[in-house]
Amino acid sequence: MNDLSFPTSSHIDFRQLARGLGTVVNYASGDVIFRENDHPNCAYIVLTGKVEVSIRGKVIEQVIEGKTFGIISLIDRKPRSATAKAVENSEVVLLDSRQFRFMIETTPNFVWYVLGEVVDRLRATNSAL
C-alpha cells in the first residue's frame, strides 16, 4: 500500500497570493466580521491577528494567521452558520466567489488547502459539541 502524502493546510501559506488577488481589510479587536445567518459574499484568510468563530455564542475556534474562515458558506451559498469576530487587531483578505474560484482552478495545491481547512473546521465543530 502506498502512503499518500497530501499537503495539509498547516503546510501551505497562500497569504501573499490572496493579498494580491483579494481585498485587504483591517478589523479592530472586537469588530464583528459577519454574523450567523448573514448572506455569504466572500471567504477570508487571516494575514495577521486572530479571529474567533462562534455558534450561538459558543466559541468553536480561533482562526490564526494563515488560516481561513467563511469557506463553507461561500461554497454552498447558504447563510452563515457562525459569527466571526476579531479578537485582536487583524488584517484579513476577503476573496469573493470569483476570486476564490480562480484560486481553486489555477493555483496548485489550493484545493488541498481548502479541503484541509474544511476538515479542520468540521473537527473543531464536532469537538465543541
Rank of each mutant, 00 (worst) to 15 (best):
I12P: 04
A43D: 04
S10K: 09
S10R: 13
A124I: 13
A84N: 00
G116V: 01
L17V: 08
T83H: 05
V53T: 06
V24H: 07
N26Q: 14
F102T: 09
A43I: 00
T23F: 11
L95V: 04
I75H: 04
L122W: 13
V25Y: 10
I64W: 15
L129G: 12
V59E: 12
V87M: 08
V59C: 12
V114D: 10
S127Q: 15
I45C: 03
V32H: 11
A86H: 05
R121A: 14
V118D: 01
V118S: 03
G30V: 04
N126I: 05
D96V: 01
I71K: 05
P7V: 12
A82K: 01
L95Y: 03
A28W: 08
D120P: 02
R15F: 00
I33A: 03
R15K: 06
F34N: 02
E36Q: 07
I60V: 10
I75V: 07
M103K: 02
N26R: 13
T83M: 04
V51Q: 05
S5A: 11
F100R: 02
V93N: 00
T8R: 10
V114F: 02
R35P: 14
G49K: 06
Y113F: 11
V111A: 14
N89D: 06
I72A: 15
T48W: 05
N89L: 02
N89A: 04
V46I: 13
N37K: 11
S5D: 13
A86W: 06
K58G: 06
D3R: 15
F102M: 08
Q16P: 06
D96M: 01
K85I: 06
L17F: 14
R98S: 15
S5P: 04
L47W: 05
C42A: 15
S90K: 00
R98Y: 12
S54E: 04
Y44K: 02
D3L: 11
K78P: 07
A86R: 01
I55T: 10
I60T: 12
N26L: 10
D76I: 06
R101L: 11
V32L: 07
Q99T: 07
V63F: 01
F6K: 13
A128R: 08
G20M: 05
S29E: 14
R121Y: 07
G22A: 02
F6P: 09
R19A: 13
Q99L: 05
P40Y: 00
I60A: 08
S10I: 11
L4D: 14
I71A: 06
D120R: 12
L115M: 10
T125K: 12
E52Y: 11
N26G: 09
N37W: 13
S81N: 15
G57K: 06
E52K: 06
Q99Y: 07
M103S: 07
L47K: 04
D13M: 03
L21M: 08
A128V: 14
R123P: 03
R35G: 14
L21F: 11
S5H: 15
R56I: 12
K50T: 13
G49W: 00
V63E: 00
V53L: 09
K50L: 08
F100E: 09
T107E: 08
Y44H: 03
K85H: 12
V51I: 07
T23H: 04
P7M: 13
G30T: 08
V92P: 03
K50F: 08
K78G: 10
T107Y: 11
D31F: 08
